[in-house]
Amino acid sequence: MQRGVQLRTAHVHYGPLEALHGVTLAAPAGTVTVLLGRNGSGRTTALRALAGTVPLTAGSVHWDGVDVTRRTAHRRAAAGLCFVPDRQAVFAGLTVAENLRLAAPDGDVTAALDAYPELRPFLGRRAGTLSGGEQRMLAVSRALLSRARVVLVDEPTQGMSPQAASRTYALLRALDACVVLAEQRLPPGLRTDGTARGGGAGGAAAVLVYELGRGAVVFSGEAGELSGPGGSASCRR
């Protein structure tokens, strides 16, 4: 049995428009899998299909070999899946501290503040008053606290400084989880080779890439196989 999450010949429609055309991809446990593509390529839809926030019109979703296509997003979350969308990823009306405490099973938010000390001065502020980059830090730190088995993040570093972005990718690669990210281009922090963790000990996770175009997979392989200045496989199409 392959551990991790998979889409198998997945089709998704938004009204009469088909956003995914039979997409098949596998995100194994112990790796970071990156879904690349321009706006409209289907990368965000694929992530949402894994999370259960958009229904499939055909195909299936599997988690650790079990068909979870009919499980709601709420049930997937309760089973250990954490989804960080690109927008409205925090509770805007709650304080930063309240957002963090809700995500921490034991109420201890130390790990989040160690990861993002920039958030410490804002613990008493409402999350909706933070800048875009600060809200992304808060959203990712909530994912770090959740201890989820599967972590799905759409554009995790949007609005962050280069230093904070680099730290974020290192944190995500160090998670003892199946991590799936949606990005427009392969970030520098994910281009280097990693060593699969094996139980979360030592080394950074290996990085796998699926590039999507117009709702279909146009490239799949390891990060090092990509060509182009931004990590694109467009010349292989």
Rank of each mutant, 00 (worst) to 15 (best):
M1V: 14
R3Q: 14
L17H: 12
E18N: 08
L20F: 04
V23W: 02
P28W: 15
V34Q: 03
S41L: 12
R43M: 08
T44F: 10
L47Y: 10
L47I: 12
L47E: 07
G59P: 05
G59S: 06
S60Y: 08
V68Y: 07
T69S: 14
R71G: 02
T72K: 09
R75K: 11
R76L: 15
A78F: 08
R87S: 13
L94D: 03
V96E: 00
A97L: 15
N99W: 00
T110K: 02
P121R: 13
L123P: 01
G124K: 00
R125I: 00
R125T: 00
R142F: 03
R147W: 06
R147K: 14
V151Q: 05
V153I: 15
E155G: 05
P156I: 09
S166Y: 06
R167Q: 04
Y169A: 08
L171P: 07
V179S: 11
L181F: 10
Q184I: 11
P187F: 13
G189C: 09
L190R: 12
G194H: 12
T195R: 15
G200M: 11
G202K: 11
G203R: 07
G213Y: 13
V217K: 04
S220A: 15
A223I: 02
G228M: 09
P229I: 09
C235A: 14
